[in-house]
């Protein structure tokens, strides 16, 4: 039996609107992945530590507050420090202004899922990108 894909869904910053994060966590679980949801108000340090401890293949960041650039850059740097070359796939969901996308890709984000994305697309992207 092949190993399940392990995913950490995380909500950084002070914003607590986590409808999206919870729906995604539920969907990925239904798609057969092992999903850990951090809960709200996680610092970048807490997220990177959880990703390391849980040995996940994917880190999904949900963010709507507008504070994405700084928070995601920090998370990406901390993941790199902790995991060396063996980084989990980093994906982002939420309201990300078009002009900010490039800098998120540059700091290591693989994909950004905006409003209206179907959960099927997200499942398909993760399955395609993580080769177990």
């Amino acid at each position: 039996m092949s190993k399940n894909i392990r995913v950490l869904i995380a909500k950084p910053g002070l914003d607590g609107h986590d409808r999206g994060a919870k729906v995604i966590a539920h969907t990925l679980r239904d798609a057969g992945m092992d999903v850990i949801y951090t809960g709200i108000r996680q610092s970048p340090e807490m997220i990177a530590e959880a990703a390391f401890q849980e040995d996940v293949d994917v880190v999904g960041i949900s963010i709507l507050s507008g504070a994405h650039i700084q928070l995601i850059r920090e998370i990406a740097e901390l993941l790199l420090q902790k995991q060396g070359g063996n980084n989990p796939l980093l994906v982002v969901g939420g309201i990300i202004p078009s002009e900010d996308k490039k800098s998120l890709y540059e700091c290591g984000v693989s994909e950004i899922f905006g409003p209206g994305t179907s959960t099927k697309e997200i499942v398909a992207f993760i399955k395609k990108s993580v080769n177990l």
Binding site: G13, L14, D15, A67, I69
Partner: peptide, 9 residues
């Protein structure tokens, strides 16, 4: 903890 969120919302 406030640094990236001052005045955002």
């Amino acid at each position: 903890i406030a640094r990236s969120e001052i005045g955002r919302v």
